[in-house]
């Protein structure tokens, strides 16, 4: 898999007349898992959406291998960047195998609807995400964890070097959260895939990120390896939370434990 470079230059983002992110510069480390964290409404999802051209910048640009996204055909981008939005909607009544196969859309034409490569890549994506047994089930009837695996399979079938995930663990219980994040980690290790994910849970972010980006009010406050940047001061600064940071007993990654709970009564 060829590695692609994704970067942002002077990026200003917003909706209607509200600016959410201002003059942001970013270099996404190639072949690494980057996790973006920050309080609600800090602009982390907005940033991810613009990296995946789901949102047009107000000014500045997102560069893919040096070319601005706005100058590239969306289909061409779809062969290099896969995006899993926060709450994707499947076509009604679609089966798992069909949905995963839709990931091949960027490679298909009206007269080229299915190739051997399509078949191989879809089979591989389904195997890696462990959804082969679900192939003939309807997506509507799956549990949250299964459905999320299917969406990831579709994004994998796109065969892109870059994968952007917007809160992929929301609505999942802790076992499924770990399962999904382990999968993401594994995709990166074995495939040298570049992953950028927005996560809510700071401890999960520390556990899975090679590169952590902490955002507040639309700007990057700190970035780097979790072990190097996550301190009680940073958490207070970014989230306004008093806490203690200790090494995780399992991975050794920084673990954030909030301060004394308020007394009952």
């Amino acid at each position: 898999m060829t590695t692609h470079r994704l970067a942002a230059r002077d990026l200003t983002l917003g909706y209607e007349d509200r600016i959410v992110v201002r003059d942001l510069d970013l270099e996404v480390p190639a072949g690494r898992v980057t996790v973006v964290v920050g309080p609600n409404a800090c602009g982390k999802s907005t940033l991810l959406r613009s990296l995946g051209r789901l949102l047009k910048p107000v000014s500045g640009s997102v560069l893919l291998d040096g070319a601005a996204l706005r100058d590239l055909p969306t289909r061409e981008i779809a062969r290099r960047i896969g995006v899993l939005p926060q709450s994707p909607v499947p076509p009604e009544g679609i089966t798992v195998a069909d949905l995963v196969a839709r990931g091949r859309q960027p490679y298909q034409r009206w007269w080229q609807q299915w190739s051997d490569e399509d078949e191989d890549v879809v089979a591989d994506a389904m195997r890696r995400t462990d959804v082969v047994e679900l192939a003939d089930r309807y997506v509507d009837e799956l549990s949250g964890g299964q459905r999320q695996r299917v969406w990831i399979a579709m994004a994998l079938a796109q065969g892109t070097g870059i994968l952007l995930l917007d809160e992929p663990t929301t609505f999942l219980d802790i076992a499924h959260q770990v399962e999904v994040l382990d999968l993401v980690r594994e995709l990166n290790v074995t495939r040298e895939r570049t992953v950028v994910a927005v996560l809510h849970d700071l401890n999960q972010a520390c556990r899975y990120a090679d590169h952590l980006i902490a955002m507040r009010d639309g700007s990057i406050v700190a970035q780097g390896a979790p072990a190097e940047i996550v301190t009680a001061d940073l958490v207070r600064d970014v989230f306004g939370l008093a806490c203690v940071v200790i090494p995780c007993p399992v991975t050794g990654a920084p673990m954030v434990v909030p301060g004394q709970p308020r007394e009952a009564g």
Partner: peptide, 17 residues
């Protein structure tokens, strides 16, 4: 028409206008 069942974000992600 196959792609019209997706939400906008997912469709763009797949390179569909």
């Amino acid at each position: 028409a196959r792609s019209a069942g997706f939400d906008d974000d997912t469709a763009i992600a797949l390179g569909v206008r």
